[in-house]
Structures are given as C-alpha cells and as structure tokens.
Design a protein around this nucleic acid. Structure first.
Lengths: 208, 208
DNA sequence: TTGGTCAGTGAACAGTTGTAACCACAGTCG
DNA sequence: CGACTGTGGTTACAACTGTTCACTGACCAA
C-alpha cells in the first residue's frame, strides 16, 4: 500500500467500510433487493445523502460486498485442493477449512448464498463471475494431479464446477447448522464428507 | 373435487389465483422480500385492501407459491428415479425431464432457486420442508434398487439429498441458459449429464 | 322474496422511501 | 497563510408503503 494516505482519505475509507459492514449486518435478515439506502446510513449514524459519496446505489454496494466476501476465498481454494495425496485426508481437510471459514465469516457466506440467485442482476453477475474464477483455479490445480492425466479438458471443467458448487452447497449447509446443537453440526459435517467422498470415488473410476 | 362450487367461491378462487400469478410474474425481476402488496394488487387490477381477503401477508402468499411450485414436482421425481435399469439411459431421461419442466415452468423454478436461501424465513422453511420430502421420496426409490442392497440407511439419505440438490442445481443452470443460443443450452445439458454420470459412477463403487 | 354473508371498494392514515439543493467546515496544498 | 476540495449535514420534496375503517352490492340459503 504505497504510502500512508492523508487523514481525509482515511476517514472516508472508514465511513465507507462502516457502510459495508452495516449493510452486511442488515442483510442477515433480508435480501439485498429490499435493503434501503436510508436503512444503511441510519445504522451507521450518518446522513442519507452521505451514502452517495461512496456508492452510486445499493446494487453498487452489493457488488463491492461480493468482492469483499469472495476475495478472501481464493487462497483457501488453493489450500483445499493442493493438500495431500490421500483422498480421504484431502476431503477431511477441505471440510475442516470450509467449516472454519463459515464460522469466521458467516454473514459473508449467507450473503453470497442468498444473492447468488437473488433479485439484483449486477450482484448476481458479479457472483457468477467470481465463481467462474474459482472453477478455473480449481481446474488449474486438477491438471497437476497425475490421476487426471488422460482427462478431457471439458471433463476437467465439469469436475471443477461440480467441486465449486458442492463447496458452496456444503458451506450453506454448515451455515444453517451454525447455531444448532453440536450433534447436528457433527451430522452435517459427516454428510458433507461422504458426499465429497462419493464424488471422489466417481472421479477415480471416471475413465473405466 | 366434491361438487361444483358456487359462482361466489369460483370468483374468489379466480382472484386468488390472479394474485398468485401476478406475484410470480413480478418475482422474475426481484425477490420476495422486496415485493409490495400494492404492487401485486395493482398488477391484478384490484384494490390493495382486497389482498387481505386472500392472504395475511406477502410471506403468506410466498408459502402458497412454494407449494404450487413444488407440488407438481413429486410425480416427476418418481419418473426420474424409477425409469430403466441402464444408468446412462436413466440419466438421459432425468436431464430431459428437468429441461422439459424448466421450459414449462421457468418462473416457478426461478422462484424456488431464489427464495431457497432468500430473506423471508417462512418461505425458506417451506422450501426446505418440501425438499426434505423430495429427498425421502428419492430415498424410498433408491431402497428398491438391488444395487443399494448393502447400503447404510445414513448413506442412502446422503445420496438422496445429493441427488435432490444436484437436480435443483441443474435446473437453475438450465434456467439461466433458457434464452441463450441453442449451442449454449446444449453445452449446459451436456455438462449436467456428465456431472450426474460422475455421481452415478461413485455410487457404483461406493462399497469397494 | 327476504335477509345475511362477504369479496371487493375508496378514502384516509402515519411512515417510509430515494434524491435534489444548498450549506458548513476540516483537511490539503500552493 | 489563504484558497480550494470534498465529506458529510440539513432541509425539503413527491412518491410510495402497509393497514384501518366504513361502505356497497352481488350471491345464496331459507
């Protein structure tokens, strides 16, 4: 980050982040298309018109929120796929990473799951774009695996997108069980593990 | 349907259905939590207050919409799972049925996909309940399959929910590609087919 | 034919919304 | 130091929201 930016810019960024955080908080109980601009500024304790200094509209804020929520996931993806050689161990570590991430950023995950097919087009497209990037990254990792040597390029893409979707699906299952009793949470993790294992088995026998 | 109900009741049902249809139409471009009661009645050409003769609230209407959208799917599920013995043929027929259903009721599918993790709790729960019922039905069909003779009860549930989720995921992929060029639609169907096949392969080797 | 039931109306309510205009004043820079 | 920049505040507007109330008039059973 080049050099320290002036007090002016710093204060602006702070307000901007406060708006993003407030919006994310409010979105736990409603969806973006019903979120009001005034609602957000009220939460922050700032005049409604100040909103326009930072975002053109709520949809605009939503797109920024998508990048904030999914940006931090890229590194996790890399860790998940390139763990060890043993499939079961890899699956276990993947589930562990997902659970950890959901526990750390539940609001972000909820936001993505909700707006992925929500009512605000620009946000939907931003999410789809990011997920496509994830699928590419996963595919790039899959190519390195000797197991996938003889695979078609198309089939690798197919498998990558299956993994990405399954990951998001698992994340929202975990999210739903977040404040459930530990036994329920354990059950969810167990089901998710076996679903991933089934996919893994299918992958091993794909070329038969 | 017992006997023909009076003109009175018939007219009421007609208005009620008009409200449901109008809401479903409006929901193609927004989500339920931002849908206004006045918006719906305006679309139908009826006074705002008339809404209360049929539904307590928008959330109430949403729950009815869930039943309308998913009710017709139960029979389809049965057809999909209990087709032929040949896995590839079964997969092909499943994809065909899904594509056909999405083409016939795009708005319903969009509604379910959108509100599945949307901002209105009662609707979310209604959808989750219906999907759980689907999973049970699929599981009941799976039990009959000799291939799954030695499977754990838990594993059968796991597989069933994986199928249900994959089906919904496929449906929303098809939906997104509805007004895309035929080549794109063909590609989507092809990817979905291979994802199902991979799951099917995993299923065959599950007990190894 | 009479009389009750009830789907739909119309007006009015207090709140809310997004957005425009103008203003204040702290931070920045020549 | 003084002028400029621009974040944020204030006030105001028209449009919209969900909900209430008393009402009309067509249907339907007696």
């Amino acid at each position: 980050m080049s050099h320290t930016l002036g007090v002016r810019q710093a204060q602006k960024q702070k307000t901007r982040q406060a708006l993003l955080d407030a919006a994310l908080g409010l979105l736990e109980e409603q969806s973006l298309s019903s979120l009001g601009l005034r609602e957000v500024t009220r939460e922050v304790g700032v005049a409604p018109t100040a909103f326009y200094r930072h975002f053109r509209s709520i949809a605009d804020l939503g797109v920024v929120l998508v990048e904030e929520a999914l940006g931090s996931l890229h590194e996790m993806i890399r860790m998940v796929v390139s763990a060890t050689d043993d499939p079961d161990e890899r699956i276990a570590s993947a589930i562990g990473l997902i659970v950890g991430h959901v526990e750390a950023h539940p609001a972000h995950i909820r936001f993505i799951a909700r707006e992925r097919s929500g009512g605000v087009r620009p946000v939907r497209e931003a999410i789809r774009g990011q997920l496509a990037r994830f699928a590419e990254e996963v595919k790039a990792q899959l190519v390195k695996d000797p197991q996938a040597e003889a695979w078609t390029d198309d089939d690798l893409s197919m498998l990558a997108s299956l993994y990405v979707d399954q990951m998001l699906f698992t994340a929202s299952l975990v999210l739903e069980a977040l404040d459930a009793p530990p036994e329920e949470r354990e059950r969810v993790a167990h089901v998710a593990t076996r679903q991933l294992r089934l996919i893994s088995i299918g992958r091993q026998h794909w070329l038969d």
